[in-house]
Design a binder for these strands. Structure first.
Length: 152
DNA sequence: GCCAACGTTGGC
DNA sequence: GCCAACGTTGGC
């Protein structure tokens, strides 16, 4: 059981979208960064906890909690020439990119980035480090507990 | 829109 | 393998 922070642009998939989906579950596709892909492929497990973060929006911050509910499988968008995430170098025999299913657990109050930066227990959180842009980052159990406590 | 930081590409 | 050029992310 591990914990993660996943970024999403709310104009693309918001916490409300996640909670409104059938079974509150959404296929996570379009990740086109190798480090993030490797986390999904090699380390994420069904049951893992997710801090759901809104990025590139007026109020960036944690907007809800979610969990991983599938293992890795090929991201279909890489094979579709009409899709914005199409990858001409990907072939079905050798998929480059993968998806996992994410299930919303609950929408929380918006915990703004600026507030996260004031919490001493979160000083080492990967997403708060200078220059950190990765869309999927690991969260320690202590960091998870600290965030959940703030959202209680 | 700006810009810092990081990732990817491709010539050599 | 190096590294310059370019592209992307994402807060502000």
């Amino acid at each position: 059981m591990q914990y993660w922070l996943m970024k999403s642009e709310p104009d693309d998939v918001s916490i409300d979208d996640l909670m409104a989906a059938p079974q509150q579950t959404t296929a996570w596709y379009g990740v086109r960064n190798y480090q993030a892909r490797n986390f999904m492929r090699d380390r994420m497990q069904p049951g893992d906890g997710v801090l759901f973060y809104h990025s590139s929006c007026p109020e960036p911050g944690i907007a809800g909690l979610a969990r991983i509910v599938s293992g890795p499988y090929p991201d279909a968008s890489q094979f579709d020439p009409d899709n914005r995430y199409y990858d001409a170098k990907a072939v079905p025999e050798q998929p480059r990119w993968i998806s996992i299913d994410v299930q919303g657990t609950r929408k929380t109050r918006l915990l703004p980035l600026a507030e996260l930066r004031t919490i001493a227990a979160l000083d080492d959180m990967v997403v708060l480090q200078k220059g950190s842009r990765l869309s999927i980052t690991p969260v320690t159990p202590a960091q998870w507990q600290a965030v959940v406590a703030l959202l209680a």
